[in-house]
């Protein structure tokens, strides 16, 4: 059966891929919550959760179950529809970003090539940016619809923080795009496989990108939208039960996806370092599996760094946050961009 240029088989393949990526995102996010608590414990000379199952591996299920069975409270004065829309948007946006990430080397079968990427579009990384820029609405709408001044303040903080840190993020990205010459994620990865990882050529760019990713995910030291000590609980103060769970979960999915984006942009994606794996003559599915695991290893490392930073650095003050974003990171990113452009021009001439 053919609908336009699209076969049913193609649709089926993509649906399976999308479903497994969403499942993977949820799974990783669940276990990132456990990893966060475990690592927080170890860094504070504690054990972390270790009662639910061996080493506490059932803890995320227990947490999720608890959230499901909590009483769901909708404030009387809130805007009901928008109150529901906020966490839904946060979740959708967190999941959509993963569409353009190449999760592994494509599988070559007798019937054709199965790409481990939902959409290898020309805009690639720009899609990520557009979705991230829409991600503010989840926080803003939720915070406003709660009809609580703390939530509103947190929402406004979150919005201005995310808008501010998108700028240095994109500027750091431009320097990468100068080198790869393409916005396609698959081409960015294959460029790195051929020429070495981007982090070698763009260490400053990676640093800026990483700091901005921290801010975009509302992670400490930039977790001002949920600053407990000054805004009670931030934008999700009025939320309870699974709606709160959606917000918290979306944060972890965001972390996962931004780690995947950073791994793809700067750490070579699914490339295995120091070896030319194409010469191994492995079965295609095995090669895809290995490349996928390599990407996951990189993502896990970046997730660990996210958590590591959270349990090391205290929260920034709001003016410090804005200072860092506008006065330090943007000039640095601009400098990085101009420098990379100049070097590239000099190398080409």
């Amino acid at each position: 059966m053919v609908i336009g240029a699209v076969t049913l088989w193609f649709i089926l393949e993509k649906v399976i891929l999308i479903a497994s990526i969403i499942g993977l995102s949820f799974f990783i996010a669940m276990y990132t919550t456990l990893a966060e608590r475990k690592i927080a414990g170890w860094m504070q000379d504690r054990h972390g959760p270790n009662r639910a199952g061996p080493f506490g591996i059932l803890q995320p299920l227990a947490d999720g179950g608890k959230l499901f069975f909590k009483e769901e409270i909708t404030p009387v004065t809130s805007n009901r529809f928008l109150f529901l829309l906020g966490p839904a948007l946060a979740m959708i946006v967190a999941l959509v970003t993963s569409t353009v990430i190449p999760w592994g080397a494509p599988v070559v079968t007798s019937t054709g090539i199965i790409s481990l990427q939902v959409a290898d579009v020309d805009m690639g990384i720009l899609i990520v940016f557009s979705v991230v820029s829409v991600g503010v609405y989840g926080i803003m709408i939720g915070g406003w619809a709660s009809n609580n001044k703390f939530s509103l303040l947190a929402a406004i903080r979150g919005a201005s923080q995310m808008v501010s840190y998108e700028l240095p993020m994109s500027l750091a990205l431009i320097a990468v795009l100068f080198m790869t010459g393409s916005l396609k994620m698959s081409e960015i990865v294959s460029y790195q496989m051929a020429n070495g990882w981007n982090i070698i050529y763009q260490p400053l760019g990676f640093l800026i990108f990483f700091i901005c990713a921290l801010a975009e995910c509302n992670r400490t030291p930039f977790d001002l939208p949920e600053a407990e000590n000054e805004l009670n609980f931030g934008y999700h103060q009025e939320y309870s039960s699974m709606k709160l769970g959606f917000y918290l979960f979306a944060e972890y999915i965001n972390m996962f996806v931004s780690s995947a984006v950073m791994a793809t942009l700067f750490l070579g994606g699914y490339d295995i370092p120091f070896v030319n794996e194409a010469n191994w003559g492995l079965a295609p599915w095995l090669y895809s599996l290995i490349s996928f695991s390599v990407l996951m290893a990189k993502v896990s490392f970046l997730l660990f760094v996210f958590i590591w930073i959270r349990w090391t650095i205290p929260r920034f003050r709001y003016d410090q946050l804005m200072n860092l974003g506008w006065r330090k990171l943007i000039p640095l990113a601009l400098f990085n961009m101009v420098l990379s452009a100049a070097i590239l021009l000099w190398l080409k001439s």
Binding site: V121, S130, S133, Y137, I156, A159, V163
Partner: peptide, 26 residues
Amino acid sequence: AQFLAVVNIIVYAGAIMVLFLFVIML
């Protein structure tokens, strides 16, 4: 026109409307 589509979302939906919402909320 993929570029236009994405930039439309980044600039209008992602930045300008955020500021609109910002002002209206305040």
